[in-house]
Amino acid sequence: MLSNIAKWLAKSCEVICTLLLIFVSLVNISQVVGRYFFGDSLPWGEEVMRFCMIWLMMLGSVACVYRAEHMAVDGLLNIVKVKYRRHMRSALYSVGAGFCLVLVFYGWDTAMSNRAQTAAASGIPMVFPYMAIPVGGGLVFIEIALSWFAGFSDSSEAQT
């Protein structure tokens, strides 16, 4: 049950990330095409791409937790007996969980205090990009917590 939730959360985040990257690539290509073939590029293009990448970073990090793909030095992990490795990894990731809590609390404050601020070129309220931090931080936290019960993806076990 819990492992299904962990998997479902990671997969959903991964799908959103993939769609985001496709969108960002299209905007980027349209910048060049627009400038050379239509003499004008989207003034909001760069900002939208930057903001999408912030969301991609946070949501992609959820998927990377599930797949244990965040870069780490594996020395200690390899010394631990295979059957405890999963929990050892959860423990190491839990340091990240503490970090995520800070992202959630202070990120929320930052997002809220920027409700009225708008981005220079696109006019997007800054609360949208900033919201990625508490939301993403919260999801990463949940994914790490779930890993204590559900472990990591099967492919990640092959790496240890």
């Binding site: 799908v15 990330c17 993939t18 991609l56 949501l59 992609g60 990377c64 870069m71 970090f99």
Partner: peptide, 17 residues
Amino acid sequence: VSSAARMSASIYLLVAC
């Protein structure tokens, strides 16, 4: 795309931190 997105996310997170 999916694998590039995950790789980018982990590099982005690294640089942000």
